Computed example of a mutant assay.
Amino acid sequence: MSSLRATVGQLSQAQKPSAGTPAYSRFVNRRIGRVFAAAAFHAGRTPNQVSLASGFCSLAGIVLVATVRPSFGLALGVTALLVLGYGLDSADGQLARLRGGGSPLGEWLDHMIDAVKIVLLHSAVLISFYRFDAFDNDSLLLVPLAYVCMSSVLFFGLILIDQLRRRHGDAAKPNVRGDSVLKSLLIAPTDYGVLCLVFLAFGNPSVFVALYGALLALNLLFLIAAIAKWYREMALLGARA
Protein backbone atom coordinates (compact mmCIF):
# COMPACT_ATOMS: atom_id res chain seq x y z
CA MET A 1 0.00 0.00 0.00
CA SER A 2 2.86 2.36 0.84
CA SER A 3 4.33 1.79 -2.62
CA LEU A 4 0.99 2.59 -4.24
CA ARG A 5 0.68 5.73 -2.08
CA ALA A 6 4.21 6.79 -3.06
CA THR A 7 3.39 6.37 -6.75
CA VAL A 8 0.26 8.47 -6.37
CA GLY A 9 2.39 11.14 -4.71
CA GLN A 10 4.91 10.97 -7.55
CA LEU A 11 2.14 11.47 -10.09
CA SER A 12 0.75 14.45 -8.18
CA GLN A 13 4.07 16.21 -8.73
CA ALA A 14 4.07 15.56 -12.46
CA GLN A 15 0.71 16.88 -13.63
CA LYS A 16 0.00 18.76 -16.82
CA PRO A 17 -0.47 22.56 -16.46
CA SER A 18 -3.79 23.56 -14.89
CA ALA A 19 -4.32 26.62 -17.11
CA GLY A 20 -7.50 26.29 -19.14
CA THR A 21 -8.58 23.09 -17.38
CA PRO A 22 -12.24 22.94 -16.26
CA ALA A 23 -12.90 22.47 -12.56
CA TYR A 24 -14.07 18.83 -12.55
CA SER A 25 -11.10 17.61 -14.59
CA ARG A 26 -8.68 19.69 -12.56
CA PHE A 27 -9.86 18.98 -9.02
CA VAL A 28 -11.63 15.62 -9.30
CA ASN A 29 -10.83 13.61 -12.40
CA ARG A 30 -7.06 14.03 -12.32
CA ARG A 31 -7.02 12.81 -8.73
CA ILE A 32 -9.15 9.79 -9.62
CA GLY A 33 -6.87 9.20 -12.60
CA ARG A 34 -3.76 9.29 -10.41
CA VAL A 35 -5.07 6.44 -8.27
CA PHE A 36 -6.04 4.39 -11.33
CA ALA A 37 -2.70 5.11 -13.03
CA ALA A 38 -0.73 4.08 -9.94
CA ALA A 39 -2.77 0.89 -9.55
CA ALA A 40 -2.32 0.06 -13.25
CA PHE A 41 1.42 0.71 -12.99
CA HIS A 42 1.83 -1.72 -10.10
CA ALA A 43 -0.37 -4.26 -11.90
CA GLY A 44 1.88 -4.09 -14.96
CA ARG A 45 -0.79 -2.67 -17.27
CA THR A 46 -0.04 -0.53 -20.32
CA PRO A 47 -1.54 2.88 -21.15
CA ASN A 48 -3.35 1.40 -24.14
CA GLN A 49 -4.96 -1.25 -21.94
CA VAL A 50 -6.18 1.50 -19.62
CA SER A 51 -7.53 3.44 -22.64
CA LEU A 52 -9.46 0.38 -23.80
CA ALA A 53 -10.83 -0.15 -20.27
CA SER A 54 -11.97 3.48 -20.29
CA GLY A 55 -13.73 2.99 -23.60
CA PHE A 56 -15.39 -0.21 -22.42
CA CYS A 57 -16.79 1.43 -19.25
CA SER A 58 -18.09 4.39 -21.22
CA LEU A 59 -19.60 2.15 -23.87
CA ALA A 60 -21.35 0.04 -21.22
CA GLY A 61 -22.95 3.16 -19.76
CA ILE A 62 -23.95 4.42 -23.20
CA VAL A 63 -25.58 1.10 -24.12
CA LEU A 64 -27.61 1.22 -20.90
CA VAL A 65 -28.83 4.73 -21.74
CA ALA A 66 -30.08 3.57 -25.13
CA THR A 67 -31.61 0.23 -24.11
CA VAL A 68 -33.01 0.49 -20.55
CA ARG A 69 -36.00 2.52 -19.46
CA PRO A 70 -34.90 5.53 -17.37
CA SER A 71 -35.08 5.00 -13.60
CA PHE A 72 -33.26 6.05 -10.47
CA GLY A 73 -31.24 2.82 -10.44
CA LEU A 74 -30.29 3.22 -14.08
CA ALA A 75 -29.20 6.80 -13.45
CA LEU A 76 -26.82 5.66 -10.70
CA GLY A 77 -25.41 2.84 -12.81
CA VAL A 78 -24.90 4.97 -15.90
CA THR A 79 -23.28 7.78 -13.94
CA ALA A 80 -20.92 5.35 -12.19
CA LEU A 81 -19.82 3.83 -15.51
CA LEU A 82 -19.35 7.19 -17.22
CA VAL A 83 -17.39 8.63 -14.28
CA LEU A 84 -15.26 5.47 -14.10
CA GLY A 85 -14.60 5.66 -17.84
CA TYR A 86 -13.61 9.30 -17.57
CA GLY A 87 -11.30 8.59 -14.63
CA LEU A 88 -9.55 5.89 -16.63
CA ASP A 89 -9.33 8.33 -19.55
CA SER A 90 -7.21 10.55 -17.32
CA ALA A 91 -5.22 7.59 -16.02
CA ASP A 92 -3.88 6.42 -19.38
CA GLY A 93 -1.91 9.61 -20.00
CA GLN A 94 -0.62 9.73 -16.44
CA LEU A 95 0.45 6.10 -16.68
CA ALA A 96 2.26 6.86 -19.95
CA ARG A 97 4.21 9.69 -18.28
CA LEU A 98 5.02 7.42 -15.35
CA ARG A 99 6.43 4.83 -17.75
CA GLY A 100 8.60 7.41 -19.51
CA GLY A 101 6.35 8.91 -22.17
CA GLY A 102 3.49 8.17 -24.53
CA SER A 103 3.42 6.96 -28.11
CA PRO A 104 1.70 8.02 -31.34
CA LEU A 105 -0.46 4.89 -31.12
CA GLY A 106 -1.52 5.75 -27.59
CA GLU A 107 -2.41 9.33 -28.50
CA TRP A 108 -4.34 8.16 -31.55
CA LEU A 109 -6.24 5.51 -29.58
CA ASP A 110 -7.14 7.98 -26.82
CA HIS A 111 -8.51 10.53 -29.29
CA MET A 112 -10.40 7.93 -31.29
CA ILE A 113 -12.14 6.65 -28.17
CA ASP A 114 -13.05 10.22 -27.20
CA ALA A 115 -14.41 10.95 -30.67
CA VAL A 116 -16.60 7.84 -30.65
CA LYS A 117 -17.73 8.39 -27.06
CA ILE A 118 -19.05 11.92 -27.50
CA VAL A 119 -21.08 10.98 -30.57
CA LEU A 120 -22.51 7.76 -29.15
CA LEU A 121 -23.48 9.25 -25.78
CA HIS A 122 -25.75 11.93 -27.21
CA SER A 123 -27.06 9.52 -29.83
CA ALA A 124 -28.00 7.17 -26.98
CA VAL A 125 -29.91 9.99 -25.25
CA LEU A 126 -31.78 10.62 -28.50
CA ILE A 127 -32.65 6.92 -28.79
CA SER A 128 -33.82 6.83 -25.18
CA PHE A 129 -36.07 9.88 -25.62
CA TYR A 130 -37.61 8.27 -28.71
CA ARG A 131 -37.94 4.68 -27.45
CA PHE A 132 -39.35 5.33 -24.00
CA ASP A 133 -41.64 8.28 -24.80
CA ALA A 134 -40.18 10.45 -22.07
CA PHE A 135 -41.91 13.51 -23.49
CA ASP A 136 -45.01 14.30 -25.49
CA ASN A 137 -43.13 17.02 -27.38
CA ASP A 138 -41.16 15.45 -30.21
CA SER A 139 -39.24 18.69 -30.71
CA LEU A 140 -37.18 17.81 -27.62
CA LEU A 141 -35.51 15.13 -29.73
CA LEU A 142 -33.64 18.03 -31.31
CA VAL A 143 -31.78 18.68 -28.03
CA PRO A 144 -29.54 15.56 -28.11
CA LEU A 145 -29.26 15.92 -31.90
CA ALA A 146 -27.94 19.46 -31.44
CA TYR A 147 -25.59 18.19 -28.73
CA VAL A 148 -24.13 15.61 -31.13
CA CYS A 149 -23.39 18.31 -33.71
CA MET A 150 -22.01 20.81 -31.20
CA SER A 151 -19.79 18.25 -29.45
CA SER A 152 -18.34 16.98 -32.72
CA VAL A 153 -17.55 20.49 -33.96
CA LEU A 154 -16.00 21.50 -30.64
CA PHE A 155 -13.91 18.33 -30.42
CA PHE A 156 -12.61 18.74 -33.97
CA GLY A 157 -11.96 22.45 -33.40
CA LEU A 158 -9.92 21.81 -30.26
CA ILE A 159 -7.84 19.10 -31.92
CA LEU A 160 -7.26 21.18 -35.07
CA ILE A 161 -6.27 24.37 -33.24
CA ASP A 162 -3.84 22.41 -31.10
CA GLN A 163 -2.21 20.86 -34.16
CA LEU A 164 -1.92 24.24 -35.93
CA ARG A 165 -0.37 25.80 -32.85
CA ARG A 166 2.18 23.00 -32.63
CA ARG A 167 3.01 23.22 -36.33
CA HIS A 168 3.60 26.98 -36.26
CA GLY A 169 5.30 27.14 -32.88
CA ASP A 170 5.37 30.50 -31.12
CA ALA A 171 3.50 32.21 -33.95
CA ALA A 172 0.22 30.94 -32.52
CA LYS A 173 0.55 30.25 -28.81
CA PRO A 174 -2.28 28.80 -26.74
CA ASN A 175 -4.09 31.33 -24.58
CA VAL A 176 -2.53 30.74 -21.18
CA ARG A 177 -3.71 33.05 -18.42
CA GLY A 178 -2.47 31.20 -15.37
CA ASP A 179 -4.25 28.55 -13.38
CA SER A 180 -7.06 30.70 -11.97
CA VAL A 181 -9.57 28.69 -9.96
CA LEU A 182 -12.28 31.15 -11.01
CA LYS A 183 -11.56 30.45 -14.67
CA SER A 184 -11.72 26.71 -14.02
CA LEU A 185 -15.15 27.16 -12.44
CA LEU A 186 -16.41 29.42 -15.23
CA ILE A 187 -15.57 26.87 -17.93
CA ALA A 188 -16.80 23.92 -15.85
CA PRO A 189 -19.93 23.42 -18.03
CA THR A 190 -17.65 22.44 -20.93
CA ASP A 191 -16.19 19.56 -18.91
CA TYR A 192 -17.23 16.05 -19.93
CA GLY A 193 -17.20 15.15 -16.24
CA VAL A 194 -20.02 17.61 -15.54
CA LEU A 195 -22.03 15.99 -18.33
CA CYS A 196 -21.44 12.60 -16.68
CA LEU A 197 -22.83 13.93 -13.39
CA VAL A 198 -25.96 15.26 -15.10
CA PHE A 199 -26.93 11.64 -15.71
CA LEU A 200 -27.67 11.36 -11.99
CA ALA A 201 -30.99 12.99 -12.98
CA PHE A 202 -31.64 10.55 -15.82
CA GLY A 203 -34.39 8.83 -13.83
CA ASN A 204 -36.41 12.07 -13.83
CA PRO A 205 -36.91 13.10 -17.48
CA SER A 206 -38.03 16.67 -16.75
CA VAL A 207 -35.07 17.44 -14.49
CA PHE A 208 -32.64 15.69 -16.80
CA VAL A 209 -33.71 17.54 -19.93
CA ALA A 210 -33.56 20.87 -18.08
CA LEU A 211 -29.98 20.25 -16.94
CA TYR A 212 -28.95 18.64 -20.23
CA GLY A 213 -30.46 21.51 -22.23
CA ALA A 214 -28.77 24.10 -20.01
CA LEU A 215 -25.41 22.42 -20.57
CA LEU A 216 -26.05 22.43 -24.31
CA ALA A 217 -26.80 26.17 -24.29
CA LEU A 218 -23.69 26.99 -22.25
CA ASN A 219 -21.50 24.84 -24.49
CA LEU A 220 -22.91 26.51 -27.59
CA LEU A 221 -21.98 29.92 -26.14
CA PHE A 222 -18.49 28.62 -25.38
CA LEU A 223 -18.16 27.22 -28.91
CA ILE A 224 -19.19 30.52 -30.50
CA ALA A 225 -16.68 32.42 -28.36
CA ALA A 226 -13.96 29.85 -29.11
CA ILE A 227 -14.56 30.01 -32.87
CA ALA A 228 -14.28 33.81 -32.80
CA LYS A 229 -11.02 33.57 -30.85
CA TRP A 230 -9.59 30.86 -33.08
CA TYR A 231 -10.49 32.88 -36.18
CA ARG A 232 -8.60 35.93 -34.88
CA GLU A 233 -5.64 33.78 -33.90
CA MET A 234 -5.40 32.09 -37.29
CA ALA A 235 -5.85 35.43 -39.11
CA LEU A 236 -2.96 36.85 -37.11
CA LEU A 237 -0.90 33.80 -37.94
CA GLY A 238 -1.63 34.30 -41.64
CA ALA A 239 -0.60 37.95 -41.46
CA ARG A 240 2.75 36.98 -39.97
CA ALA A 241 3.43 34.26 -42.54
Rank of each mutant, 00 (worst) to 15 (best):
R5D: 05
S12V: 02
K16D: 15
G20H: 11
T21S: 00
P22G: 01
P22F: 11
A23C: 09
S25V: 03
R26P: 00
R26F: 07
N29E: 15
R34S: 14
R34P: 01
F36N: 07
A38P: 00
A40R: 02
G44V: 05
T46M: 11
P47H: 15
Q49P: 04
V50K: 08
S51F: 05
F56K: 05
C57L: 08
L59T: 00
A60D: 00
L64P: 00
T67S: 07
V68P: 01
V68R: 10
R69F: 00
P70M: 10
P70Q: 03
G77R: 05
V78E: 00
Y86W: 11
L88N: 06
D89K: 12
S90M: 12
A96M: 04
R97Y: 03
R99W: 06
G101E: 08
G101V: 13
L105C: 09
W108H: 07
L109F: 09
H111R: 05
K117G: 13
H122N: 13
V125W: 07
F129K: 04
Y130F: 09
R131G: 02
A134G: 04
S139R: 12
L140M: 05
P144G: 06
V148K: 03
F155I: 06
F156L: 12
L158I: 09
D162M: 11
Q163R: 10
R165S: 14
R166K: 13
R166E: 12
D170E: 13
A172M: 03
P174A: 12
N175I: 07
R177N: 00
S180L: 03
L182E: 00
L182V: 06
L186M: 03
I187T: 01
P189C: 10
G193P: 01
G193S: 14
V198H: 11
A201S: 14
A201G: 11
G203M: 01
A210E: 14
Y212G: 15
A214M: 13
A214G: 13
L215I: 14
L216D: 04
L216V: 08
N219E: 12
N219D: 11
L221F: 14
F222E: 03
I227H: 03
R232V: 10
L236T: 07
L236M: 09
G238F: 15
R240Y: 06
A241E: 13
A241H: 12
